[in-house]
Design a protein around this nucleic acid. Structure first.
Lengths: 203, 203
DNA sequence: GTCTATACGCCGATAGAC
DNA sequence: GTCTATCGGCGTATAGAC
C-alpha cells in the first residue's frame, strides 16, 4: 500500500521517469499542489493510471523518493569515511558533496533543505534521525574526542557548522546568492570549520 | 477576496482567535492539512461559516497572518535601530528578540523559519525581500562600511550569521536541542558574531 | 449575524473492458 | 499492461432561511 511495488511488470525506466517528475514537481510546486496528473504529464506518460503500475499511490512515490535520497546520501558518507581519516577531512568531503549536489542536482538539495517533509510524510522519522545524519553527528563526536573540534555539545557544533553550510546553500537554491554554489565553497567551508575547530589553524 | 474584510461587523477578539488557531494549526499540521473546520474547532466557534464574516477565504487568513508577523518584526527592528547605534548592538538586539520569540511564541518562529510559505502564498514576495529582512541586510552593510564587520559580500555575511542563529533556533523548535533557546543564546551569539566581525575582539 | 443545507470542483483511487 | 469511465470523499464556498 505504502510502498513501491516489488515486481513492476514494466520498464524500470518509467519508474525513474515518474520519480524524477515527482521530485521536480514536489520541489517546484510542493507536494500538495502536485496532482498525479501533473506527474504523468511531466513524466510523459500517455495515461495517469500507468503510475499505479509502479506505485500504490501518491504517498508511496514520495516515500520512495525520500528513501532513495537518504540511502544514497548514507552510502556516500560511508564512502567518505572510508577514504578520509580525520574529522576535518571527512567533514570537508561532505561539504564538497553538498556543494556539488547543489550545482548538479539542485532538486535533491531542495528536497533535503527546503521541503517540509513531515508535512506530507508524517510517519517518516525526522531527517536528523536518519542514518546519514546520525553518521555526521558521530563524525563530529569523534572530532571532539580526538581534539580536532572544540569541546562543546555535539548537537550545537552540528547546528553551527551546518547552519553556515546549509543556509548558504539555501540562498544559492533560492537565488538570493546569485552565483553557483561552487564559487562560495572554499570560503564557506573555512567559516564553518573555524567555528567548531579547536584552533583556527586553517588561517 | 484575498484580504481581510475591512469592516468586520463583529467582535475583533474572534478575528484574533481565528488567526491564533490558524497559526497553531498551520505550524503543527501544515497549511494543506488544515481545514476551515479544524480552525473553527480550535478557535471554539460554533460554526465554521463564522470564519467567512472575518475572512474571504482560507488563503486570506494565511495572508493576514504573514503580514501581521512581518509587520510586527519590521516595527521591532525599527525600534531596535532607534535604541542602538552600532551594527553589533543592533544585531545583538535582533538576536535577543529572535531567541525570546522562540521561547515565548514558538509558533511565530516556526512560521518564519520552518514553514515553506511560498507553497501556500505563492504570490507573496519572499521573506528576504520583505522590509524587515531588507533592514537587517542594511544593518550588515552599515557594519561593513563602519569597519565593524569584515569586508565580504553582505548577502554572504547575512547567510553565515543567520545560518548559525536560525539553525540553532530551528533545532530548538524541533526538539533536537532540548533546552530553552535562552540557554544557548550567549554562546550562539558569540559564534555568529565572530564569523563576521572584523576582529574576534569579543573573546 | 447565525446557522443549515447544499452545491461544486478537484483529485485520488477503483472497476472493468480490451 | 493499457486505457476509459467513473466512483467517492473531502473541503471550500455559496445560498438562503431565520
Amino acid at each position: 500500500m505504502e510502498q513501491e511495488k516489488e515486481n513492476p511488470q514494466t520498464n524500470p525506466e518509467i519508474q525513474d521517469k515518474i520519480l524524477l517528475a515527482a521530485l521536480t514537481l514536489f520541489t517546484n510546486k510542493g507536494y500538495f499542489n502536485t496532482s498525479l496528473n501533473d506527474i504523468a504529464k511531466v513524466a510523459e506518460l500517455d495515461n495517469t493510471q500507468i503510475i499505479y503500475n509502479y506505485f500504490a499511490n501518491k504517498h508511496a512515490i514520495a516515500t520512495t523518493l525520500y528513501n532513495n535520497i537518504l540511502d544514497n546520501l548514507s552510502i556516500s558518507i560511508d564512502d567518505i569515511k572510508r577514504r578520509n581519516s580525520t574529522a576535518s577531512e571527512q567533514l570537508r568531503s561532505i561539504v564538497d558533496l553538498l556543494f556539488k549536489l547543489t550545482d548538479d542536482a539542485p532538486s535533491i538539495m531542495h528536497f533535503l533543505l527546503i521541503l517540509k517533509i513531515r508535512e506530507f510524510l508524517p510517519e517518516q522519522r525526522a531527517l536528523n534521525e536518519s542514518p546519514a545524519f546520525i553518521k555526521i553527528l558521530k563524525i563530529i563526536q569523534t572530532g571532539i574526542r580526538s581534539g580536532e573540534i572544540r569541546n562543546i555539545d555535539p548537537q550545537l557544533a552540528n547546528a553551527y557548522f551546518f547552519g553556515v553550510i546549509n543556509n548558504t546553500l539555501r540562498m544559492v537554491l533560492n537565488g538570493t546568492l546569485d552565483k553557483k554554489a561552487d564559487s562560495y565553497q572554499s570560503q564557506t567551508w573555512l567559516m564553518a570549520w573555524n567555528i567548531i575547530a579547536k584552533k583556527s589553524s586553517v588561517f
